[in-house]
């Protein structure tokens, strides 16, 4: 288990949560969400002792996962990228279909939100393509928009 998340690393909290949510459903997604969180966390702060302890613990965990798994998508990042792109698109298309069928609920908000974060994690493989960048922004905007409408009792357009 990880030590408590230092406040300065709050920005990576949701990616770690998404990783936990996928531990049983899709360990490849969990692995890359945590790798993204680690990489981003190190960019935010790798100097303070509390952040260093957090990063080292997360690194230990990822090394252990990689040693123990025989998943090609974890060992080969090209395969991993394809896996993550397919999965993110699947979540995005589910939310988009629900949206276009005017089925608005918390599940659709969560799916758009998760898709947006999964598109974020694709940056561990390099610069995002134009299409993915477009979907990433759209998914985040849609999640916020439908959430706001549901909260205010309005019907999303």
């Amino acid at each position: 288990s990880l030590p408590p998340l230092p406040p300065q690393l709050k920005a990576i909290q949701h990616y770690l949560k998404t990783a936990t949510e996928h531990d049983k459903r899709d360990p490849v997604v969990s692995y890359y969400c945590r790798l993204y969180a680690l990489q981003n966390g190190m960019e935010i702060d790798k100097k303070s002792p509390e952040c260093r302890v957090f990063h080292v613990t997360l690194m230990d965990y990822l090394e252990k996962v990689k040693k123990e798994t025989d998943s090609e998508a974890v060992h080969n990042e090209v395969v991993g990228q394809a896996h993550m792109e397919n999965y993110a698109l699947k979540v995005f298309l589910y939310a988009d279909n629900e949206d276009r069928a005017s089925r608005f609920n918390k599940n659709v908000v969560k799916s758009f939100y998760t898709a947006g974060m999964l598109f974020d994690t694709l940056s561990v493989f390099g610069e995002l393509s134009e299409d993915i960048e477009k979907n990433r922004k759209y998914a985040k905007w849609k999640a916020a928009y439908i959430h706001r409408c549901l909260k205010n009792g309005e019907t999303p357009v």
């Binding site: 990489q39 190190m42 790798k46 260093r52 990063h55 080292v56 090394e63 990689k66 040693k67 060992h75």
Partner: peptide, 28 residues
């Protein structure tokens, strides 16, 4: 000053170690 220098060197060594471990993890 030498203590500060040593601390800085130690801190940067630890930072490098983290980055190196990350790079190694991705090549494993």
């Amino acid at each position: 000053p030498s203590t500060v220098g040593q601390s800085t060197a130690a801190a940067s060594g630890e930072q490098d170690e983290l980055s190196q471990r990350l790079a190694k993890l991705r090549q494993m």
